[in-house]
Nucleic acid binder design. Structure first.
Length: 417
RNA sequence: GGAGAGGUGGCAGAGUGGUCGAAUGCGGCGGUCUCGAAAACCGUUAGGCUCGUAAGGGUCUCGUAGGUUCAAAUCCUACCCUCUCCGCCA
């Protein structure tokens, strides 16, 4: 959520950042009017409270000295009633302001390009060249069937459409990727390993912003108020909720493997074949808590950390800087990494790395205490996939297929499989 | 599932109607001592909101939400959470 102070004090720049995300800024002016009203009411109400507190002090002293008389209570009941009225007015306005403010997306950082749809995203880097084959490359569905790695038919029987059953080398590949990616991020990139719960409570889902707006997209349990995580971002980001860190602890970097569960309601008919869009998939997620001011550099290094996975897996990819209109609700800046699949002749989003600045930290209340003794302030948060398995496996199969339809896995996986 | 205990500052832990935003200890910070450090000693150390250029002032916060009262950490009601024991179980 946005800072009401920022809204108040830097209105014009904020509006620019929101307009870049194609957000209607009329709500900002409404908010400012409510904010003015609220502060006036608070000032008035607190004057009355000060009056009441003084009167109470007098009573307290009088009782001790034995000089108490009923006349001291005169009018105090009326005063308390008035205070109650102010409080309830402020309470209602607070509620309104809060409702409005949590519905406002984060602003786009100034380094984000203009644009309203994915077509205006900017490719900022390409790595590797789409492979030339001496034969007609097959798509991953065909390869999966031929090698017996994945059975979509059986997954449908067991669960339903949108699930994958990995078998044989395919099943081992999941385990291998898990260890390969987590090891890379722990040993080489300095992340701390986490194994999070896959069921989380409503507060956690609200903290990272999946709720209240996207409840329909989430799997929920019938008898308990738990949700299946759509990404490890939810439990991992909430690890530090309501905590105050020391400055020297920053940056905190977590890496976690988890299964991810998504209803994908409303996306039927779009990429529904094969591995590209599933109700359950696996992912290694990277989450960082950093000092304000370092967030943009940390975003660049986060992208590098994710890129290295694809480099080692020898999958050609491109890095795309999202334009304002394509940014998600909470993101201030975001890079997508898209892997190339020569069978499908398509780019697939395999990783998405974002910084939220203090937007998410305000919501989950994560602060750090500066070492100079100043008051705690909000950290900045980032996260990114490092990386998503299903689409990676898709790319792996299509890129490393041989003429006979077999698949030769890259060297980096040798020690894991 | 059954029974019980408890939720207070960064942590531990007192406080049962009126200078209690809260004793004390630990931790943190500053200082004295020291060549330096440790120990010891002295001092200091919550957060939010709001008014103010500032200095500073006001106000709110003891799990959450209500209630009683001139006044609530303290009394009443509901809810949430945690822990312990028993049962069941991977």
């Amino acid at each position: 959520m946005l800072d009401i102070r920022l809204i108040r004090e830097d209105t014009n720049n904020l509006k620019k950042g929101l307009q870049k995300k194609k957000v209607d800024t009329a709500v900002i002016d409404k908010l400012l009017a409510l904010d003015r009203e609220r502060r006036d009411l608070i000032t008035e109400g607190e004057k009355l409270k000060a009056e009441r507190n003084q009167a109470n002090d007098k009573i307290s002293k009088a009782k001790k000295e034995g000089t108490f008389s009923e006349s001291l209570l005169l009018d105090l009941k009326v005063l308390s009633q008035k205070i109650g009225e102010y409080d309830s007015k402020v309470g209602k306005i607070d509620e309104n302001i809060n409702k409005m403010i949590v519905a406002i997306p984060n602003f786009a950082h100034e380094s984000v390009p203009d644009g309203s749809t994915a077509e205006q995203n900017k490719t900022v880097k390409e790595w590797g060249k789409p492979k030339e084959f001496s034969f007609k490359p097959k798509d991953h569905m065909e390869l999966a069937a031929q090698n017996g790695w994945i059975s979509f038919e059986r997954a449908t029987k067991i669960s339903g459409a949108g699930f994958a059953l990995y078998q044989k080398e395919g099943a081992r590949l999941i385990r291998a990727l898990m260890n390969f990616m987590v090891d890379l991020h722990v040993k080489k990139h300095g992340y701390q390993e986490i194994w999070p719960p896959s069921l989380v409570n409503r507060t956690s889902m609200t903290g990272t912003g999946q709720l209240p707006k996207m409840e329909e997209d989430m799997y929920a349990l019938k008898n308990d108020d738990f949700f299946l995580i759509p990404t490890a971002e939810v439990p991992v980001t909430n690890i530090l909720r309501d905590e105050v860190l020391k400055e020297e602890e920053l940056p905190v970097k977590f890496v976690a493997y988890s299964p991810c569960f998504r209803r994908e309601a409303g996306s039927y008919g779009k990429d529904t074949r094969g591995l590209s869009r599933l109700h359950q998939f696996d992912k290694v997620e990277l989450v960082k808590f950093v000092k304000p001011g370092t967030a943009l550099d940390e975003l660049e290094s986060l992208v590098c950390d994710a890129e290295e996975v694809l480099q080692l897996l020898e999958i050609p990819y491109r890095v795309v800087l999202l334009c304002g209109g394509d940014l998600s609700f909470a993101a201030a800046k975001c890079y997508d990494i898209e892997g190339y699949a020569p069978g499908a002749k398509k780019w697939f989003e395999i990783s998405s790395c974002s910084t939220f600045l203090d937007f998410q930290a305000r919501r989950i209340n994560v602060k750090y205490k500066p070492s100079d003794g100043k008051k705690p302030q909000l950290v900045h948060t980032l996260n990114g996939s490092g990386v998503a398995f299903a689409r990676t496996i898709l790319c792996l199969m299509e890129n490393h297929q041989q003429a006979d339809g077999s698949i030769k896995l890259p060297k980096a996986l040798e020690e894991y499989i």
